[in-house]
Nucleic acid binder design. Structure first.
Length: 590
RNA sequence: CGGGGCGUAGCGCAGCCUGGUAGCGCACCUGCUUUGGGAGCAGGGUGUCGGAGGUUCGAAUCCUCUCGCCCCGACCA
């Protein structure tokens, strides 16, 4: 391909709305252009990368025994009514009407469609298992799309769904997909980690996320420095010492806490409860600073609103509530921090002054507060807090649980002496074991060998195609531009004839280009009549792995310059060795 | 949805406070010179100042409404 012909508009400056490096570089390198918030055009260079990713995914899925299908993007509401998600899914589901006023949605995921497809055809256990996948554009009307392809509204995703006669077979396939995903991300040249994850709105029993490690990632993951435990922080558990069973006498538990700060040792005398004035002091920092104590002494009381009613959640002042854990403990469908109005009604005080003493609603608490002796809480009246608050003497808790976010340095919940570290990651893949959630709701059944009707056991496995491209850039770039790993590179070799008006240079360039192309390589030749600086800078920006420079000086010796994008060295190679040399570089990665 | 900000040339921005004929850099077009890491000189403006309404002799500028976009938060496969 000639640079003068390809539609590849590079930019010297980043667009003002791009924040993360992958978004800036993809725009500058002429890969994508924004059409609307979270909606992009893919230009030729961007599409080439997308296709590379798709092909890796396709090859590995096929190798794993899955078969490709293609489902519609526009889905009739009936299917979503059947699964119950038409009402449950929320506003990310873009609902549209056709000319007959019939309801449809743009597919954000395809469990309903695939379940419908399979239930119509599959009758017997003999026709199972099945693993079907598609690579398709999805639409989720995200509240706040951002970061270019990392969190678009419209995005390309590979989604696979498997159907099984038995739990064991579904778990075998889950492992098969897990292994396949590892191979896919390895082939893409990504540094990643598989972590335990929440199952979220898609539902199901357990799941793993595949996280590309990057500081700009939107997810935080906790990872043990000794064993292979790794989990999304939404899910990451704390270590429970002794037994973590609900209902045990509170002080018997000490859920893996950091030692209490000096001066507040367990077992110190319980002092008399006292009310103190704390005008305008709401946050943990303000209150602990004002009262000259530490956040560890505070018990934070958060009022939540849920389908199970208004509840209070208590956690030690230096920790944060993990809403996923709270939701699970409550067995709630939904959960929100209560609004100011509800807080006032419940606590008789503006938010910031809630406390458990005398509070007349159901209260759940994180294990961490069991270690707090003579603690500080809100007084349930404006501008006042209570000091020397003690569990059981001054208030009672309806249930204890692991309700807090893990923090760096927490003990590993799985092994004896490991500690958790927190990393940021970009979720590029997710595998779920769905179980029978959809097959039961939608009556996707089969007859087993005894002639009994049973719901199919399902699994679901997604990969964000565009996110892989973006994540790769987050991991592979420098101040000049993208550095593509060979498997994802839009071209393998970038040829730069310095002076396109010099016949010898151009003849050599044409020959090299033809030879490399004949050898099966994708070559971009910068035949533009531009200054060398412009060509070199564009080459660095778009990040093709191999650069070959052809100039009249080295040409006299029958040589061209070879430079890898990822390293600064420049080597001369003879014209007749070019194909051999470049092929050797490409081989391991192809 | 709450808070904040921005919409002016293809891109990045100034002008707005204090109303008076639309600007800068880059890009683009023409010519000459230059030619191995984003060239120089000369000439050229390609604009519904996001949109609608209002105030005014006069609005990019002031007021009202509206649309779009971005950031923070909330929320979230």
């Amino acid at each position: 391909m000639r640079f003068s012909q390809i539609f590849l508009p590079t930019l010297k400056e980043s667009p003002s709305d791009a924040e993360v490096i992958s978004h800036k570089l993809m725009t500058r390198a002429g890969m994508i252009r924004k059409v609307a918030a979270g909606i992009y055009n893919y230009l030729p260079l961007g599409l080439k990368v997308i296709r590379k990713v798709e092909n890796i995914v396709r090859e590995e899925m096929n190798r794993a025994g899955a078969q490709e299908v293609f489902m519609p993007m526009v889905i009739p509401s009936e299917l979503w009514q059947e699964s119950g998600r038409w009402n449950a899914y929320g506003k990310e589901l873009l609902r549209i009407k056709d000319r007959h006023e019939r309801d449809f949605c743009l597919g954000p995921t395809h469990e309903e469609v695939i379940t419908d497809m399979v239930r119509r055809e599959v009758r017997s256990y003999r026709e199972l298992p099945r693993n079907l996948y598609q690579i398709q554009t999805k639409f989720r009307d995200e509240i706040r799309p951002r970061f270019g392809l990392m969190r678009g509204r419209e995005f390309i995703m590979k989604d696979a769904y498997s159907f099984h006669a038995t739990e064991e077979d579904a778990e075998r396939e889950y492992q098969n997909m897990y292994d396949t995903y590892c191979r896919i991300f390895e082939r893409c040249g990504l540094k990643f980690r598989a972590v335990e994850a929440e199952t979220g709105a898609i539902g199901g029993k357990f799941s793993h996320e595949f996280m590309v490690l990057a500081d700009t990632g939107e997810d935080a993951i906790a990872s043990c420095n000794k064993c292979n435990y790794a989990a999304n922080v939404e899910k990451a558990e704390i270590k429970i010492q002794g037994s973590g069973v609900r209902g045990l006498p509170p002080q018997a538990l000490n859920g893996g806490q950091k030692p209490a700060p000096a001066g507040f040792k367990q077992g110190s005398e319980e002092k008399p409860l006292e009310k103190v004035s704390t005008p305008g002091m709401k946050s943990v920092e303000e209150v602990s600073g004002f009262l000259r104590t530490t956040p560890q002494k505070l018990i934070k009381t958060l009022i939540y609103h849920s389908d199970k009613g208004v509840v209070a959640a208590l956690v030690r002042g230096d920790y944060e509530i993990n809403e996923s854990k709270l939701k699970k403990l409550l067995d709630a469908e939904w959960l929100n921090l209560a609004d100011e109005e509800t807080v006032r009604r419940t606590t008789n005080a503006p938010s910031g002054f809630a406390g458990p003493v005398g509070l007349n609603i159901t209260m759940f608490a994180d294990y961490s507060i069991q270690a707090v002796i003579n603690g500080v809480t809100g007084a349930n009246e404006a501008d006042a807090h209570l000091i020397n608050v003690n569990l059981n003497r001054d208030f009672k808790i309806d249930g204890f649980g692991d309700l807090r976010m893990v923090v760096s340095g927490d003990s590993c919940p799985r092994c004896a002496d490991g500690n958790l570290e927190i990393f940021r990651g970009i979720e590029v893949g997710h595998v779920f074991k769905l179980g029978t959630k959809y097959s039961e709701a939608m009556n996707a059944t089969f007859l087993n060998e005894k002639g009994q009707e049973r719901p199919m056991i399902m699994g679901c496995y997604g990969i964000g195609i565009g996110r892989i491209a973006a994540a790769s850039i987050e991991q592979n770039h420098d101040e000049n531009g993208i550095i593509w790993p060979i498997p994802l590179a839009p071209f393998q070799a970038h040829l730069i004839p310095i002076n396109v008006n010099d016949k010898a240079t151009m003849d050599a360039a044409e020959t090299v280009s033809k030879n490399l192309t004949d050898a099966g390589l994708d070559v971009l030749m910068d035949d533009r009549d531009e200054r060398a600086g412009i060509k070199f800078n564009d080459a660095d920006l778009i990040g093709i792995p191999v650069r070959l420079t052809i100039g009249s000086k080295t040409l006299k010796e029958g040589s061209v310059e070879l430079k890898m994008r990822k390293s600064p060295e420049i080597n001369l190679i003879k014209l007749d060795k070019v194909v051999e040399k470049i092929s050797a570089i490409m081989r391991p990665a192809r």
